[in-house]
Write a protein that binds this DNA or RNA. Structure first.
Lengths: 152, 152
DNA sequence: CCTCCGACTGTGCAATCTGCTCGATGTGTC
DNA sequence: GACACATCGAGCAGATTGCACAGTCGGAGG
């Protein structure tokens, strides 16, 4: 990860449509270099994919909420995780520090729909308690780019 | 969002490298249709970008934590949000329900580094209290694709 | 029932880009 | 000084893109 890598990623982040040739022109390096750098960045896992970024809001799910789940002693986190994975509205779920807890991000079509989603998420014997917070606004939208510079 | 849109997105999600021509072959539609659909999906915001997906872990920040911040009455969320936005390690931040609270996702190089990041994040007069949970494992990695089918 | 319109198809073409290869140059390491 | 490695600049065949055009089809509206 040197400066060229960062600049390269920033360029593709800003204008994903540019190809290797155009990128090489912008950065003043050879096309082969761009190709090689990208290939290396992908192999090392820094770039994990080029797929389209999807917006749940535009998909009709504008409501975001975070569930904190308390797991019953003895019940594996994995079984709860598997259960959560079957629910499309669960966008991610993590095990977190604390008394056997998990944190899950869910989306829903509306507040009414959120209730349904939560009910479905909590429908597992391993979950003994839960609390929900609803995201009202997004102050900092998800981003990783600023981290690049501090990773050089 | 009909079935073709979903299939199209799923294809590009699975194999981002395929072009419009290859995609049209796979799906058995005309190339122009693929182009038109993608253009429409981007215009409608469902597809918000094609940029490279970055992995904070591979960038040297394998530790993820969630901060819950309690904001002082009268202090705007926005000033706190602006403050958080200046910290590269803050990947996202939301206003949430509850007594004037915010939820932020941060990453760090190590647990020791996390302390530094948290200190920096909390260094704002509008923040009166905070709690931190560390993500130990990821049961459900971030995903949106499953939501597609239920959005048709 | 007929007409219009939008979406899709299939085709063609010029311009462009990609994947691949080659030899040459430059730099840091042992 | 020899060597490994990254980069450069160039070339080439093959594939893809952007664009245009005419024909087909099904639904909406008169």
């Amino acid at each position: 990860m040197d400066d060229l890598d960062v600049t390269l990623i920033e360029l593709f982040h800003a204008e994903p449509r540019v190809g290797a040739l155009e990128a090489s022109r912008r950065l003043g390096v050879a096309r082969g270099t761009v190709t090689a750098r990208l290939e290396r960045l992908e192999r090392s896992g820094v770039i994990s994919g080029w797929g389209p970024t999807l917006d749940p809001s535009a998909l009709g799910h504008p409501v975001t909420a975070f569930l904190t789940l308390e797991i019953r002693q003895g019940a594996g986190h994995d079984t709860v995780g598997d259960h959560l994975a079957t629910i499309p509205e669960v966008l991610e779920a993590h095990t977190i520090t604390g008394p056997g807890d998990m944190l899950a991000r869910v989306v829903a079509r509306s507040n009414a729909d959120l209730q349904t989603v939560i009910d479905r998420a909590l429908d597992h014997p391993g979950i003994v308690r839960s609390s929900t917070v609803i995201a009202l606004a997004t102050q900092v939208p998800y981003r990783v780019t600023p981290l690049l510079r501090s990773s050089v």
